[in-house]
Computed example of a mutant assay.
Amino acid sequence: MKVLLIALIAALIGVSIIAAYFYGLSKKDVKSKFVLQPFDSTLVAWWAAVFAILVVSLFFLNFDSDFIISNNIGQVGDFVGGLTNPILSFIALLVLLRTTMIQTSEARNTTEFLERQALFMDRQKFEGTFFQILNRLETYCEVHFRKVDPVTGVSEGERVSKLISANHLACSALSPISQLRRVKKDTRTLLYNDVCIGFNGRAMRALRLINNSDISDNLKRSFAGLLIDSMYPSERKIIVHFAFFYNRTARKMLRKWDFPRLKKHAFGCYLIFQYYKGEIGK
């Protein structure tokens, strides 16, 4: 019986070690994406066979010579079954546990893959829409702002741009309220027209798409940079002055995404430059 007791204690220790091993694997799977492999079926069969042989061997090593097996089949069955059934059930539980862990890991990987695929498709959809809007914006600019006058050699965008900042120094010397009134008066005939309204609508459609998308902030800034680079400096000058006076929402959005990236002398007055640089309130 001492041998049997030692074997049972060893089995208990083994069970504890295996349980701790599986606990460690579960943590490793979560943190480091360790890939579990299923138990080899041959290995499981050998485990079961070894345990069964061990139990039967313990029985034959410990039963009395006067004990007649044929007359005590029930006791033999109780002894062998009482020891082998828990052990074999535990082996089955280990196999089931490992299978469950593998299925859980695969389900998690599948979910992550589907999420990445959804993000990729959303990104593709966003890029397709963005570049379509950007192409229409550039076409609009080509028609209305970039054609060069054969007489003066100056494009319409450059002409309007120069007139916007023509009185920069004089306007900047006035009080804040006077600066805004003077620039708005000087630029009203230049900017408040169908061409600039259409230009503002197309440019802000692209910027709203960027602002409201689900992409990361770094990508948003990257696409905002593409939008800025697609415009000539004169066109950026037109859009920020139009938005400043006639579209409050557009004005805030342009400031948020670092438009127009122009020097202070390019503005109608210094106050507008300060606004887009974030130096004064919204």
Score class of each variant (00 low, 15 high):
56 V>W: 06
61 L>N: 12
61 L>K: 13
63 F>K: 12
63 F>L: 00
63 F>E: 05
64 D>V: 10
64 D>Q: 14
66 D>K: 11
66 D>Q: 03
66 D>A: 11
67 F>R: 02
67 F>D: 03
68 I>W: 09
68 I>Y: 06
69 I>D: 05
71 N>E: 15
72 N>F: 06
72 N>Q: 10
72 N>S: 12
73 I>V: 12
74 G>C: 06
74 G>D: 10
75 Q>F: 10
75 Q>E: 08
76 V>T: 10
78 D>P: 00
78 D>H: 06
78 D>E: 13
80 V>F: 02
80 V>H: 07
80 V>A: 08
82 G>F: 02
82 G>L: 07
87 I>S: 02
88 L>P: 02
89 S>W: 04
90 F>H: 01
91 I>K: 08
92 A>V: 06
92 A>F: 11
93 L>N: 08
93 L>C: 04
94 L>P: 06
97 L>G: 12
97 L>R: 11
97 L>N: 07
97 L>P: 00
97 L>C: 10
98 R>Y: 06
101 M>V: 00
101 M>E: 06
103 Q>W: 09
105 S>V: 02
106 E>H: 02
107 A>L: 04
107 A>R: 13
108 R>T: 10
109 N>C: 04
110 T>E: 14
111 T>Q: 15
112 E>C: 06
113 F>K: 04
115 E>N: 03
115 E>C: 02
116 R>I: 07
118 A>V: 05
118 A>S: 14
120 F>Y: 12
121 M>I: 03
122 D>R: 15
125 K>Q: 05
125 K>W: 00
126 F>N: 13
126 F>C: 15
129 T>F: 03
131 F>A: 14
132 Q>K: 11
133 I>G: 03
134 L>W: 00
135 N>M: 11
136 R>C: 02
138 E>T: 13
140 Y>R: 09
141 C>L: 10
144 H>D: 05
146 R>D: 08
